[in-house]
Design a protein around this nucleic acid. Structure first.
Lengths: 155, 155
DNA sequence: TCAAATGTGGAGCCATCAACTCCACATTTC
DNA sequence: GAAATGTGGAGTTGATGGCTCCACATTTGA
């Protein structure tokens, strides 16, 4: 019952992009440093977002990533499925119904749970997250640390 | 973002116990066979429930497990924490707040999400699950299959 | 025109952990 | 006292989340 780091990284990166002035672009390095996400792993995360059509990428010098839709139109559900596919809480559901127990006692709770989660994901947009940000940038020292750590790994 | 099998097994076992006539007891073997849960793994699951005080165990011949409270008074939240400890969706929360970003954009969503899940868990009791059961026993064939598979492993 | 700066695709590594097994042992009862 | 139960805990295993690395395609500005 945990959210994956990949999903968390994706959301953070999107928020970062959303806060750039007017559909600006940022490259992997910038996102990676600002969010403390390992460079080469972030590359993979971003590819998922590109594939899903949430961000656009441009190659070559001055390249990078930018949002393809206004923040208000990007829901967490889209981000989640981009990263993890269909939301499902237990194996036996969603695929075929649990073959073993005809009508299982939990089925209804699991599905209620799933709906609750899905609803929150569907009704929360990047725009909402922007409003919630209180403190934009990391403290200088922690940023330094992360830079040292990831610049080496990343470059 | 998945529920563990351990938790699922625990709930199923408790429902099984709850359906016994008047606080009856059932032994590992009976629960294991009826629910299709590997015998020796179920032993571990049940120990968690005993430790947490949800079921009582008796040793020796005619021993087994029985609920220590009426089904209405056992919430899924208790079962969850018995099996998995504190409910938390992301590493950075609940422990210390994420050291890197002062006020992180997602914190509020994650906590709303957590609350939604926790609320459902807290407000759903074994009693509710009993009402929801439509079809009590597994089909004969699938039970046979499971018996064959687990009887060997278990005994 | 070409070298540097970007993202892409994909193979591959690694540690962790859920899920499960096994065994020696304590307790109870017939 | 032997059979039937649960207990405690160490050990096994396979999957996979998280991450690295590298060869390559594209773009651009010096």
């Amino acid at each position: 019952m945990q959210l994956s780091k990949g999903f968390d990284y994706a959301v953070r990166s999107l928020v970062f992009l959303a806060r750039l002035p007017e559909g600006g672009t940022a490259d992997l390095r910038a996102i990676s440093l600002s969010q403390g996400v390992p460079h080469s792993y972030l590359a993979k995360v971003m590819r998922s977002l590109v594939r899903r059509g949430l961000v656009a990428s441009t190659l070559g010098r001055e390249g990078g990533y930018r949002l393809r839709k206004p923040p208000r139109e990007i829901t967490l559900l889209e981000v989640f499925t981009a990263m993890e596919g269909e939301l499902r809480l237990v194996e036996c559901m969603d695929g075929q119904s649990c073959a073993f127990l005809g009508g299982c006692a939990q089925a209804e709770v699991w599905s209620r749970l799933r709906n609750a989660v899905e609803t929150i994901f569907r009704e929360t947009t990047l725009g909402d997250l922007l409003r919630e940000v209180r403190n934009d940038l990391p403290a200088k020292e922690s940023l330094k640390k992360k830079e040292g750590r990831y610049a080496r790994a990343g470059a």
